Deep mutational scan, measured.
Amino acid sequence: TFVEFNGKKVEYPTPEAAEKAAKKLAKKLNLKVTKKNGNYKLE
């Protein structure tokens, strides 16, 4: 499962880990999380 932000793509071993990381990053970077095709994107 990938988390995409600032043009970077980071892969996580589980969807749970990706979701957790996405939410944490979104909060830190003041972005919102969108889920697309099972992957997460911060914008």
Rank of each mutant, 00 (worst) to 15 (best):
1 T>Y: 15
1 T>V: 13
1 T>E: 02
1 T>G: 07
2 F>R: 04
2 F>A: 05
2 F>K: 03
3 V>F: 04
3 V>E: 00
3 V>A: 00
3 V>S: 01
3 V>G: 00
3 V>C: 05
4 E>L: 09
4 E>W: 10
4 E>M: 09
4 E>V: 08
4 E>P: 00
4 E>T: 07
5 F>E: 00
5 F>D: 00
5 F>G: 00
6 N>A: 11
6 N>F: 14
7 G>R: 05
7 G>S: 05
7 G>I: 01
7 G>A: 04
7 G>K: 06
8 K>F: 13
8 K>N: 10
9 K>E: 05
9 K>A: 09
9 K>M: 12
9 K>V: 12
10 V>D: 04
11 E>L: 15
11 E>A: 12
11 E>P: 10
12 Y>I: 02
12 Y>N: 00
13 P>E: 09
13 P>F: 06
13 P>M: 08
13 P>V: 06
13 P>S: 11
14 T>S: 10
15 P>T: 09
15 P>R: 12
15 P>W: 09
15 P>L: 07
16 E>S: 09
16 E>A: 11
17 A>F: 05
17 A>M: 12
17 A>C: 10
17 A>P: 01
17 A>L: 13
18 A>N: 00
18 A>L: 02
18 A>D: 00
18 A>S: 02
19 E>M: 11
19 E>H: 12
19 E>D: 07
19 E>N: 07
20 K>V: 10
20 K>F: 12
20 K>C: 14
20 K>L: 12
20 K>R: 13
20 K>H: 11
20 K>I: 12
21 A>E: 06
21 A>S: 06
21 A>T: 04
22 A>I: 07
22 A>Y: 02
22 A>N: 00
23 K>E: 09
23 K>Y: 15
23 K>L: 15
24 K>T: 13
24 K>C: 15
24 K>L: 13
25 L>G: 01
25 L>W: 10
25 L>E: 01
25 L>I: 10
26 A>I: 03
26 A>P: 00
26 A>V: 02
26 A>C: 04
27 K>H: 09
27 K>P: 00
28 K>H: 11
28 K>W: 13
28 K>T: 10
29 L>T: 04
29 L>C: 14
29 L>E: 03
29 L>A: 04
29 L>N: 05
30 N>L: 06
30 N>E: 05
31 L>I: 04
31 L>Y: 05
31 L>W: 04
31 L>G: 02
31 L>V: 05
32 K>Y: 08
32 K>A: 07
32 K>Q: 09
32 K>N: 07
33 V>P: 02
33 V>N: 01
33 V>Q: 02
33 V>W: 08
33 V>R: 02
34 T>G: 04
34 T>K: 07
35 K>Q: 11
35 K>H: 09
35 K>N: 08
35 K>W: 13
36 K>C: 14
36 K>E: 15
36 K>V: 15
36 K>W: 13
37 N>I: 03
37 N>D: 14
37 N>Q: 08
37 N>Y: 07
37 N>S: 07
37 N>M: 07
38 G>I: 02
38 G>Q: 05
38 G>L: 04
38 G>R: 05
39 N>T: 12
39 N>I: 14
39 N>R: 06
39 N>C: 13
40 Y>Q: 02
40 Y>K: 02
40 Y>H: 03
40 Y>G: 01
40 Y>N: 01
40 Y>C: 02
40 Y>T: 02
40 Y>P: 01
41 K>F: 15
41 K>Q: 13
41 K>D: 04
41 K>T: 14
42 L>Q: 01
42 L>C: 03
43 E>W: 12
43 E>S: 09
43 E>I: 13
43 E>F: 12
43 E>H: 09
43 E>K: 06
